[in-house]
Computed example of a mutant assay.
Amino acid sequence: MSGIPVHEVDRHRQAWVLKADQWSLAQDPVAEQEGKYRGYTEAIKAAGYTVWTGVGEVYMVPLTLTVWARPEEPSFLFDLEGAAETQIVYAASLPDALTLLNQLAPTLQALAVTDQIAHAEPETMSVLADVLDKLHDRRRGKNGSVIQK
């Protein structure tokens, strides 16, 4: 997210919006709803957003992403939640959201893999081992030991 301008004074009522590959501060549509509702999720919904997609589960991975969408600009809200802090940014339109998702893709890919490993059950661990063996071009014998090449 390089090229983001320096923070401005009224930051608590403004949010970063990506539009046509440019970042700018704009009025935060969710901040306008805060105080009227009990929780932040209720404020997001009151601003007209519904969940569009997401990855990761809180407390299971170090960073989760939930993307919310609505018809009017800014059309997409990106909720990045870390262990200690949450950051919200917006994308004005679908092309802007896809650009931002593309920028986040390496992180999202790592989150998806971490999430799968975190949810692996003992009965599916052999599938995970098979995937890792395939990635590392390894073969195993019937007893599970690695066959040397």
Rank of each mutant, 00 (worst) to 15 (best):
K36H: 15
D130A: 12
L18F: 09
V55D: 03
G3M: 08
V113T: 09
D21Q: 11
V9K: 15
W16R: 14
R139F: 06
V9I: 11
T114A: 15
A83N: 09
I44Y: 00
Y37M: 02
Q33L: 05
V17D: 07
Q116W: 13
L101K: 01
S75Y: 01
P71F: 03
Q22Y: 03
T107C: 03
Y49N: 09
S126L: 09
I44M: 03
K19C: 12
T86Y: 01
Q33H: 13
Q14R: 14
D133Q: 10
A112G: 02
P122M: 09
A105M: 07
A120V: 09
D28S: 12
V89P: 06
Y37H: 15
E73L: 00
W68S: 11
L108S: 04
V30Y: 08
D133P: 05
A20R: 14
A20H: 13
H119E: 09
N143G: 13
Q27N: 08
H12E: 15
P29N: 05
P62I: 02
D115W: 09
L63K: 02
D130G: 07
R139D: 13
W68L: 06
W23M: 11
V51T: 04
A20W: 03
Y37R: 06
T86V: 02
E8T: 13
L94F: 07
G54H: 11
R38G: 13
M1C: 09
Q87H: 07
A47Y: 09
V89T: 04
K45E: 15
G56C: 06
T53R: 07
G82A: 00
A20T: 08
A69R: 14
V67E: 03
A110W: 00
A110L: 10
Y37V: 07
A69Q: 14
R38A: 13
T124I: 08
T50C: 00
E32C: 05
A31K: 11
Y49K: 01
V58P: 04
P122Q: 10
K142T: 13
R140L: 14
A110C: 05
V113L: 11
Y90K: 00
Q33P: 10
V30I: 12
L100T: 00
Q14M: 14
K36W: 08
W16P: 14
A92L: 02
G35S: 06
